[in-house]
């Protein structure tokens, strides 16, 4: 409708593409060949998520013990500093736990932003080269997001299982089989699943700013390797 589009009449309207499966393939290869960097990015996530998963799973175990109405166990619990809810109610994490949890997640995201910024700086050339070969900004964004999602998923899964495992083992040692007799396995499943989701989310959150920086970079800037 605009007359100015006529200016470009000679250039066939064609698009550059990066199919989803291809971008996953590239992202996986990139993670593999930069294993140590990926590991460093993932370790803080594994720690934070295992802590989150531990707290979550623990709260379900405590709820189970309270439900058992076993006097000795409940006494041990309150001596351990837990606020025992009324019978039949769910145990809720203490404000102190929530505060530490919040801090650990915050530190984790800051850590991810930091390592991802370094990763972007390391990959200036690669990004520039891809752009010279016809990559759009959103191809770069896509590659970084998929990489972060995969790292986040694997890290969070390891963290979630570790955290839940530690919580279960710890309470088994303390309370014996009582710890799991009344526990809601649904609840434990929920804590693991929510930990994994949270981990993916944090990983994506942490990579967003570095990935946007990378995607917006002009090819020559990237080639010159300056910041």
């Amino acid at each position: 409708m605009q007359p100015e589009t006529k200016l470009k009449k000679n250039l066939p309207k064609k698009q550059v593409v990066l199919p989803f499966l291809k971008s996953v393939e590239i992202a996986v290869k990139s993670i593999k060949s930069r294993f140590f960097r990926s590991l460093i990015t993932t370790i803080s996530l594994i720690l934070a998520i295992s802590f989150y998963s531990y707290i979550k799973t623990n709260s379900y175990i405590i709820s189970g013990i309270v439900f058992s109405e076993n006097k000795i166990a409940i006494q041990t619990l309150s001596q351990g500093g837990y606020e025992i809810p009324a019978t039949g109610e769910q145990y809720n994490t203490t404000p102190k736990e929530r505060w530490i949890l919040f801090l650990s997640l915050l530190v984790c995201v800051v850590g991810i932003v930091n390592t991802q910024l370094m990763a972007v700086a390391d990959r200036f050339r690669e990004i520039g080269t891809m752009k010279c070969l016809g990559a759009l900004d959103r191809f770069i964004l896509k590659l970084f997001l998929i990489e972060a999602f995969l790292q986040g998923f694997i890290g969070a899964a390891i963290g979630a299982l570790t955290g839940a495992g530690i919580a279960l083992c710890g309470s088994l040692i303390k309370f014996g089989t009582l710890a799991i007799t009344y526990v809601s396995f649904n609840g434990i499943f929920i804590s693991i699943a929510s930990s994994i989701l949270l981990g993916c989310f944090l990983s994506l959150l942490g990579v967003l700013y570095p990935a946007l920086l990378a995607a917006r970079m002009q090819p020559i800037e990237a080639m010159r390797g300056r910041d």
Partner: peptide
């Protein structure tokens, strides 16, 4: 888009 196509 056209620029990317040109480069590609």
């Amino acid at each position: 888009y056209e620029l990317a196509w040109l480069r590609c």
